[in-house]
Design a protein around this nucleic acid. Structure first.
Lengths: 238, 238
DNA sequence: GTTCCATGTTGACAGCGGCAACATTGGATG
DNA sequence: CATCCAATGTTGCCGCTGTCAACATGGAAC
C-alpha cells in the first residue's frame, strides 16, 4: 500500500525514504503473505522477505521474535481472511423464511465459504495447518476448545466463524431438525468433512478433476452431511 | 521402488563396518522414518539422517536423488503402514451375516483403521499430506485418480485400501443401502470426513480432549456419515 | 540542544542442501 | 590369479538460511 523505496545505491543517498520504515511489520507480513500465495508455505524465508521489502536481513527481528513468529503472523492473517470468506458466503444469499431451512442454509454457506477460501488461497490454507507453536489458527477449529460431550457453546462465544456453525446447529436443534441427543460433536463431524474435502481437493488427485466435477464432489459431500445431520422424517421420495 | 538388501556376501557376511554399507538405502530410510516419528516432518534432515546412520553426509545421494526424494520414500513407507492399519482393522472383527451390514461394517472399519493410524503415527500421517512432487501418498487418496461423476471403480482397481472403501460402497449399492444415483462421489464425501477428523484430532484443540471424548467425536462422525449414506427407510424410531 | 531507545544495519557463525572430485571396494572379466 | 570397472562412500566446497552481537541512526522526550 505504501510508497516504494528508492534504491539509494550509488553514493550520495538522495531522499531515501527513511532509515526507519514506519510500518515495517506490516510490510514484512505482506511480503510473507505474498510469498505464501505465490510459492507456498515453504517459501516464507526471512531473508527473502526482508529483501523483497527492501530492508536488511535482520531488520525483521525487531518485529518478529524469529522465523516461526513470522509464520504465526501469516497464519493469523490467513485465519482472518478465511473468516471473512465464511462471512461473505453467509451474506451472499438471502435468508430463508423457514427457520429450519434457514439454519440449514447457514450451515451449508459456512462450509461453502470455507471451501471457497481453501480453493482461492491454497497456500494460505495449507500454512494454517502446519503444526507450529500454536496448535492451529483455523478460525473455526481454534474455537473448538472446550468441546465436550456436554456441548460446545458452553464457554465459547467468540466472534469467529465457528460461532456461525455452532449457532446454526443450535438453531437446528431448536427447530427440530437435529435432535438434542445428537447435537454433541455434530460440529466436529461437519467440520471434519468440510476441512477434509478441502484437503482432498488441494492435495489429492482430485485436484486434476474438471471444475464441475469438483463442485459436484463438494455438493455431494454437503448433501451427505446434511442428510446425516437431519433427524426429521425424510420427505416422501418423489 | 523399495529394494531389499541383497545377501550377496553369502556365507561369512557379517564383518566390520565395511566401506560399503550393504543396505544403506534402507538404513537411511529407517533413520528418516524414526526422525519423523520422534520430531515430526520437518526433522528429516539429510545430514542428520546420514549422521545417525554413521555415514558421511553425501552418501545419501547415491540412493536418493535429493532431499525431497528421501521424503517421498518416507511418504511411501507411511503409506504402506497406513494401508496395513486399514487392513488390520478390517480383519479385527468377524464379518456380519447380513451382507448390507457387512458392507457398512467394512466402511466403518476402513475409516477406523485410517484414524487409528493417524493417531498412532501423527508424524507419518502429517508428512503424507505435505505437498511435494507427487500430489499425495495417501493409500486411499492416491487411488482416487480417474474419479468422475461416472463412478470411480471404472479404471482403478489397485490393491490399496481404497479398493476396500470402493468395494464396500459398491456392495452398499448392490444390497440396496445406497441408491445408485447417490453412489458417485460418496467415497469422496466419506473420506473427506475421515481424513478431516484425523486432522482435527491432531492439529486442533480437539487434541486436548480426553481420550473418551476423542473416540466419541470419531464415532459421532462415523454415525453422521453412515446415516448420510444410508438411503433405506429409517427404522421406526423407538 | 542533549539524550535516549526503538528501529535498522553490518558482520559473523553454524547448519543446511547440493555439487564435483577423489577414494575404496566387490564382482565381472580376462 | 590379476586386472579393470562401476557402484558406492568420502572430502571439500559453494551459496543459502536463521540467528546473534555489536554498531548506526534518528525521532521524540526532556
Amino acid at each position: 500500500m505504501a510508497e516504494q523505496h528508492e534504491p539509494d545505491s550509488g553514493g550520495t543517498g538522495r531522499r531515501r525514504r527513511a532509515y526507519h520504515h514506519g510500518d515495517l511489520r506490516n510490510a514484512l507480513l505482506e511480503a510473507a503473505v505474498r510469498q505464501v500465495r505465490e510459492n507456498g508455505p515453504d517459501a516464507v524465508v526471512l531473508r527473502e522477505v526482508a529483501r523483497a521489502t527492501g530492508v536488511s536481513s535482520t531488520a525483521a527481528y525487531r518485529h518478529f521474535a524469529n522465523h516461526q513468529d513470522l509464520i504465526e503472523a501469516v497464519k493469523q492473517t490467513a485465519s482472518d481472511l478465511m473468516a471473512a470468506s465464511v462471512r461473505a458466503e453467509l451474506a451472499a444469499a438471502p435468508p430463508s423464511a423457514d427457520p429450519a431451512e434457514e439454519a440449514l442454509r447457514r450451515v451449508r454457506a459456512a462450509g461453502s465459504g470455507y471451501v471457497s477460501f481453501a480453493r482461492a488461497e491454497p497456500g494460505l490454507f495449507r500454512i494454517m495447518f502446519r503444526g507450529g507453536e500454536k496448535p492451529c489458527e483455523d478460525p473455526v477449529i481454534k474455537h473448538l476448545r472446550g468441546v465436550s460431550d456436554e456441548g460446545i457453546d458452553g464457554g465459547v462465544k467468540k466472534d469467529a466463524s465457528y460461532t456461525i456453525l455452532a449457532e446454526a446447529l443450535d438453531d437446528l436443534v431448536v427447530h427440530g431438525v437435529l435432535s438434542p441427543a445428537r447435537r454433541p460433536f455434530a460440529d466436529v463431524a461437519l467440520w471434519s468433512a468440510v476441512h477434509g474435502i478441502c484437503t482432498l481437493l488441494l492435495e489429492s488427485d482430485l485436484a486434476a478433476l474438471p471444475e464441475e466435477a469438483k463442485q459436484a464432489a463438494v455438493e455431494r459431500t454437503f448433501d451427505v452431511l446434511l442428510r446425516g445431520i437431519d433427524d426429521r422424517e425424510p420427505p416422501p421420495a418423489g
